[in-house]
Each structure stands twice: as structure tokens, then as C-alpha cells.
Design a protein around this nucleic acid. Structure first.
Lengths: 160, 160
DNA sequence: TTATTTCCCCATAGGATTTGTAGGGTTATA
DNA sequence: TATAACCCTACAAATCCTATGGGGAAATAA
């Protein structure tokens, strides 16, 4: 299950994606520079009610994780460093929740050897690798851009 | 990530699967009645070192969950109620870890409404349903029988 | 009948993790 | 200079995970 952190992160990110879309539309530019329109925590919380202090720690993680940039002082806030379709959901989840794999011994980014389990003999290993791959097939393909797709509309089948 | 409980469960179950296979081979029967050869906790722990008291609570959960049967007294123990290929991994995980879905609001067996989240508008909903389906495609197809497949050997592609 | 073996059940303790809070510091703008 | 906003660390509260302990009930064997 996704942690509250990850859930809140996705809510806040959806606000940033919409801000990015609005900016692109307004500018009429196909590929504008990101970062022109930071959104303050207070605005995100207005849209998605939650503890602003808690959200703050989440946004800091996302910034350190290379997904967001920030601007200090009045008029400041957070903004996407890349275009929404360039940030897969997997990256967000790894930053906030850690491994996506169901076992440490089959994790690509957070590998740890199993204790009391000989990997060469362990039957679970291979099965959980399958699960991991099935997850990644979705989470590496779907991006922040998909977060903003309204329920009526179809999701892209093979973006990028 | 799978809990320790689920991991221990799979280790113990792999012992029971091998016992079942050995029994079928010995009997030469294609479809023998299960339950003829219970395995005691002490034997499982001998094969997979872990706290036997902790394993006990796990096995009780599996019994209540309809996967195992038990026999008391000397010569007693636990045994599979069905043939290994008839118990999908998903069933084991649901018993010990609860929902497989990444969000309560997309869970098939443990559905709960999202708080502070309008499902009709929430963009995450649909994406996480995709993740759930990808998981289930593996976890409902793979069964306890696959647990006993040695690493060299190929897994079945479409059992049943 | 008695002893032994094994599963059955419940309560709870200890630790880890998650979730959230507090408070002050730094930077940018007006 | 005042204000708005992000930055950082520590910690508190709640929850969940992991495991343990002790006694009870049932089956078997002597």
C-alpha cells in the first residue's frame, strides 16, 4: 500500500501539473522553460486539505529527489523541474516509500541480500521478480502527466 | 513489501508443497486425497530456521483462511487442503498482509472509500487500478506449485 | 488411565515505522 | 525593515510489526 506521504505527494503534484499545463496553454509555447510559476504550499493545501507542515517535509523530499525545484521568498513556492510526462510515477514512489519490489532481494534500486534464504534455491525469488516487473511496467510508463487526466478521458496508451 | 509473516508463510508452505509432491510420487496416485501426511511445526522450523511460536500464529491464520488443515496430537501437524496448483499466491498474501492494491479505494477484497478524495475526480484512482491489475495478473496465476520449482527449471507459462 | 505430543487461543511486550508537530533559521521581495 | 515563503532538525504520538509466554484441548500411544 502507498503511504500517506506518497498519496499526499501525488495530490500536490497534480496541482503542480495543472499549473504547468495552464502555463503552457497561456504562453502558447510548445516547450516553455519550467519553473516560471511556482506554487506555494498554502495554495496546494487550499486545494487538497492536509497538514501544511507535513506536506512541507514531503515537498522537500521531492526536491532533494530531483523532481521539484523551489523558489524562496514572497511569491515563491515549488515547481516541476521537468515536464510532467518526463517523471514516471515510480520515481515519486521510490523517493517517499522506498522499494517498489515486494522483497529486498529482488529490488533494483534498494537491493539487500535475504537473510536465512539461499537465493539460488529460494523459489519465492523468481516469482517476486515477476511481480516487480509487472509493477514497473505500469509505474515506469505512467507519468505525472497521467495524474491530470480527467476520469472521462482516455489515458495515453504509449506516451513518449 | 511483503511482511515477514508472508515470507515465513511462503517458506513453510514450500515445505508442505514438497511433502505433497513426495506423497503423490510415493503413492503413484494422480490425485490423492490431501491431508494424509501432516507436517509438524517443529519439522518446518528445522528446514527454515525461525521462531516456532511466531510460525504457529501464521499457520493458524492460514488454517482459518482456508488454505491449511491441521491434525492434533502425536503425528499431527499441518497439511494443504487443496493441491498446490489450486492455491494462488494472492490468497496467501491477502490472509497475512491484507490488501494487494496500492490504495484502499481500488481494492477488490478490502475496499474502503478514500477520505478527502473525490473518486470521480481523483486521477490517482485509475492509475493505481492499473497497478493492482498488473499485480493480480501474476499473483492470481502463480500458485504454491510454482514455489517448489527449482531455479534451473522453467516456470509453467499457463497452468490450469 | 496416564503421559506425551501436538495444535489452539489469547494477551501482551518491545521495537520499528509512520504520521504529524514545533520552532527557529534563511532567503527573497516589497 | 517587514513580510512571505522555503529550509532544517528534532521530537512526539500513534500505529503496526514482530515476537513471546502461558495455559488449554485434543489425539495418540503405552
Amino acid at each position: 500500500m502507498l503511504s500517506k506521504k506518497a498519496q499526499y505527494a501525488f495530490r500536490a503534484l497534480s496541482t503542480l501539473v495543472r499549473a504547468d499545463l495552464a502555463l503552457r496553454k497561456e504562453q502558447g509555447a510548445v516547450n516553455p522553460t519550467p519553473g516560471e510559476h511556482p506554487v506555494a504550499i498554502s495554495e496546494m493545501v487550499k486545494e487538497h486539505p492536509m497538514s501544511s507542515k507535513f506536506l512541507e517535509t514531503i515537498l522537500l523530499d521531492l526536491r532533494r529527489g530531483g523532481i521539484l525545484g523551489s523558489k524562496k521568498g514572497k511569491g515563491g513556492g515549488y515547481y516541476l523541474l521537468k515536464h510532467p510526462e518526463d517523471t514516471p510515477l515510480a520515481q515519486v514512489i521510490r523517493i517517499l516509500d522506498g522499494p517498489i519490489a515486494p522483497l529486498p532481494c529482488v529490488s533494483l534500486h534498494f537491493y539487500e541480500r535475504c537473510v536465512d534464504c539461499n537465493e539460488a534455491v529460494c523459489g519465492l525469488n523468481r516469482l517476486m521478480s515477476e511481480v516487480r516487473d509487472a509493477n514497473l511496467a505500469v509505474l515506469e510508463r505512467r507519468t505525472l502527466a497521467d495524474l491530470a487526466v480527467k476520469p472521462g478521458q482516455p489515458l495515453g496508451q504509449a506516451q513518449r
